[in-house]
Design a protein around this nucleic acid. Structure first.
Lengths: 211, 211, 211, 211
DNA sequence: AATGAATGAGTTTTCATTCAT
DNA sequence: TATGAATGAAAACTCATTCAT
């Protein structure tokens, strides 16, 4: 019987589980589609025995979903810490753009990760179940944006007459769209700079109080 | 050796191929994740022999990619015809919202379809290859939006000072975001009406010349 | 989905199924314990591909249970034909002893087969389900003995004052006990002859009308 | 290297071994088929470490065979003590029927145990080896019956003209048959009472001197 | 002595693909 | 051309056994 649920904190993770999580993440970052991930692939990369995976998890799906949930938590926490240091809503948005570009950009990772939140794969469904069951919805993009906006609204930075939910969805949409742009255009340089600026300004102009 | 490439027109398709395409689409609409689709599942639903699939296609991936490409073409052509009838850019946008809500809405289909355009699955990659190779990029959402915008620009409906590409990505983003909203909130009624209106107005206010 | 249920007649069996049944039976006769039987073992002996087994059966247990059910039917039918030719109850009993000794005697087969009818193994349970579901209880030893006894009772050969059920169980017990004797003593010759005669006479003296 | 052979007396058994034996017996009584018994299942129920089992036994089979051998000894000894208190052969037979009905009746235990004495499972073979090697054949049913019959013969209670071995096998057969009846008919009450009486009388009439 | 985490050989099962008919 | 029975490589998963602690 698997003992790991995905609710464990980084420090609580048994050594082997950490190795398994790392292996899943590596495979994901290398571009392996989740449907093509195998248990031998994971344990091989983790450098441990195949059976060990089943000492901690009930199934391949559980293992992968827990690993991705963990990645999600880690990434969001790191991002949250960075965002908290920012003074203004504008700086927070800029920080989000940086994050989107830098921390998780290779191999279309962020995009594929977002897919997981709304696809029909067994792993995606499991992941979403876990997110809900463990009440860690605060790691979901939409919740993150809502929190930022609430704070900005209290500070009088964003227009009070626009629905928070709409704003959150819009930020989500535009950032996700920017990720798609990065994937499709697949280039650095001026064009990217320009697009980033336009999307950023689009958000700011629509939601921010003019000063 | 498979003879079907996905470039065939609806009328040119052999009967069996049409049956296969329909079966793939049905499975997709029923919610089957592409990773869980099987050749027997397809031929079973199509009511033809399993071997027949290999008379027309070289592999399962080819078959599914061609089927989805075909669906994509059909849908886009239908949509284009509808859009052409609209006089103004605003009406076209409204038409797009209708389409998103009505024609492909069940079971998160549109969302999953969009994923295909930017994922790492073998079927997705094949599909994109075909789109590029056959120069049918005009069926891609981004191209569709660019065409609409070009016409609107010529007609003086949209602001001439904003980059067409940015506008296309923004429309794409916001529509895709609306699709995600529909998936997550999963409800009809007032709330949905309101969100639709907000997203619609967001687009119009940002891009349209005030009258 | 497995298509074979175990209800098929010998002539109706697809070639491969016949090969599978034969292989299971051979393994059984060679002394392999049912718990040690593997699908590769079966298909290897049958000389066919492993996957083929799953074209006809849903699981290993289904395959083995069907094979044994089939053996059971074949054997009982053969035995019934032999018994029908016998004029008297005494001759029928003698025939049963012959059958026990000859047709299924090697490697403790009959004994192990009888175990199947009252054990807790998954195969045994499946086999009994099939026997009941398909209403082929007439192949069960107890039913066979009851039929013989009914006929003998009508013919005035057995005492009318003894319960048929008791007589059937007694015959079953004593024959099964004789099978155990054959297994434990594991020898031919005089001792065996003597035991057979004693068991036979025990039955006849208890149940038959003295002439 | 395992140090336990199955020859140890109850008092000599190390604490852990006693726990292991109890666990095996519990699992058996709960209805677990021996083929489905696992080492973790046993040690889990025993509440001790999995490795500990291998400090005392060389293999799972050894462990289970020793546990069952031990159970067999305990049960037979208890039964023997009860039988010794009985004055007459008839009372002893009645005692055997009681024992069969009461002490080991649930979940078809006695029946499954008897199977072990004549099956082809690795555990069964090991058990029989141990029985022979350790010359504890006196715990086998057949030997038990022979002893009872010898005493009854000396006391003039059973007919002197019938072979002891035949009588032993017959008693064994009829009792085993009664166990099968209990399993198949699975009911208490009148019918069972009647069958018991018939079997009992069958034995007595055949073997006992008329008084 | 006791443990239980770790292992990997071995099992069941699936399914894309082939090919004789 | 169309079929679907047959295949076997590859996958998930189990569990007896070992061994460092």
């Amino acid at each position: 019987m698997g003992r790991i649920t995905g609710a464990e904190k980084q420090e609580e993770l048994p050594e082997k589980v950490r190795l398994l999580y790392d292996a899943v993440f590596q495979l994901f970052v290398e571009g392996t589609d989740l449907a093509d991930i195998t248990v031998s692939g994971i344990t091989g990369k983790a450098g441990i025995g195949k059976g060990t995976a089943y000492d901690y998890f009930d199934s391949k799906e559980e293992l992968v979903a827990c690993a991705l949930l963990h990645v999600m938590k880690q990434m969001t926490e790191k991002l949250l810490k960075m965002l908290e240091k920012k003074e203004s809503f504008g700086e927070q948005m800029a920080c989000l753009f940086d994050w989107v570009e830098n921390s998780f950009y290779e191999r279309n990772c962020l995009n594929r990760f977002l897919h997981l939140l709304t696809d029909n794969s067994s792993i995606g469904q499991l992941l979403r179940q876990k997110v809900e069951a463990k009440e860690i919805e605060r790691y979901l993009p939409m919740t993150l944006f809502q929190r930022l906006l609430e704070k900005a609204a209290r500070g009088g930075e964003v227009r009070p007459d626009i629905s928070l939910e709409y704003m959150a969805y819009t930020i989500y949409s535009r950032l996700a769209g920017y990720v798609t742009f990065l994937y499709i255009e697949n280039q650095e340089g001026e064009k990217r700079e320009k697009m980033r600026m336009l999307v950023y300004q689009g958000i700011m102009k629509e939601f921010c109080v003019e000063s």
